[in-house]
Structures are given as structure tokens and as C-alpha cells.
């Protein structure tokens, strides 16, 4: 079965969605990701959806859910690379994904994670 790969980079889990997600795939991703977060004790999850061209309410909800689950497991989620058409669709569907942080591309997303208060305070502690 098709799976979306989850890469670990330091404290961060990197998820790049390279194909159009179907419902089962999204559910599998949710399972895999939560398992990986608890295994690796990752502090951040970066989901790149730049290749995602079609979203429906289900996928929109899954993205919100994944972010919510990650937060409970003490990892912040940044959603990056959303296409304009996808953003408009989600807004028209009434899903503005509150509570999910967003960035234009992976680079900006990584900056956002690095700049986040949780990370910065830890960094400060380590450097002291």
C-alpha cells in the first residue's frame, strides 16, 4: 500500500506529500505520524503539501486533526507550500485551519520552527 514517507531531521519530522492524497492515505499518515512522534519525541512536524492539488473537506479536516494530535503529543506543526487554489478551496469550505501554523515554503517553515519560543528557550538553556 502507498505510504507517505516521514523523515526525521533532528527534532523535526518532515512529511512531504508528493501525490494527491486519498482518504485511506491520510488515515495511514495520521497513524504513522502519531506513532513516530511518540517514538522519536520530535518537537516539530513540518508537512509540505506543495504537490497537493486537490483537497476536499475530509483532507482538510485530516490536516487540522494531525496538527491537533501533534500538539497534544507536544510537537508543533507547520503546514507549508499550500497552493493558492487549495487555500481558496479550504476557505470556501469554511476550514481556515485555526491553530495550524503555516508558511510559504519548506525553508520558511524551518525558520518558523527554529524561531518558535519553545525551541528558542531550549536552545538558550543548552547554550548556557
Amino acid at each position: 500500500m502507498e505510504r507517505i514517507p516521514i523523515l526525521k531531521m533532528g527534532d523535526c519530522l518532515l512529511v512531504t506529500v508528493q501525490v494527491d492524497m486519498h482518504d485511506q492515505m491520510a488515515l495511514t499518515l495520521q497513524d504513522d505520524l502519531t506513532t513516530r512522534i511518540s517514538q522519536t519525541k520530535a518537537k516539530a512536524v513540518l508537512i509540505d503539501i506543495s504537490a497537493l492539488e486537490i483537497v476536499d473537506s475530509f483532507i482538510g479536516r485530516m490536516l487540522g486533526n494531525i496538527a491537533g494530535m501533534a500538539r497534544i503529543l507536544d510537537a508543533q506543526t507547520v503546514l507549508v507550500g499550500m497552493r493558492p487554489a487549495v487555500a481558496i478551496t479550504l476557505v470556501e469550505l469554511g476550514m481556515s485551519l485555526p491553530g495550524v501554523r503555516t508558511a510559504l515554503n519548506v525553508e520558511r517553515g524551518m525558520d518558523l520552527i527554529r524561531m518558535s519560543p519553545a525551541n528558542r528557550s531550549r536552545h538558550d538553556r543548552e547554550s548556557r
Binding site: 503546514l79 499550500m82 487555500a87 479550504l90 476557505v91 470556501e92 481556515s96 515554503n105
Partner: peptide
């Protein structure tokens, strides 16, 4: 607000 939400989803 719709325009604002859409821009936020794009990270702006």
C-alpha cells in the same frame, strides 16, 4: 476575512 484566512494558509 476569507481573503485573510486564505493568505494565512499560504503563510502570509
Amino acid at each position: 476575512l476569507k481573503a485573510v484566512s486564505a493568505a494565512r494558509l499560504m503563510g502570509a
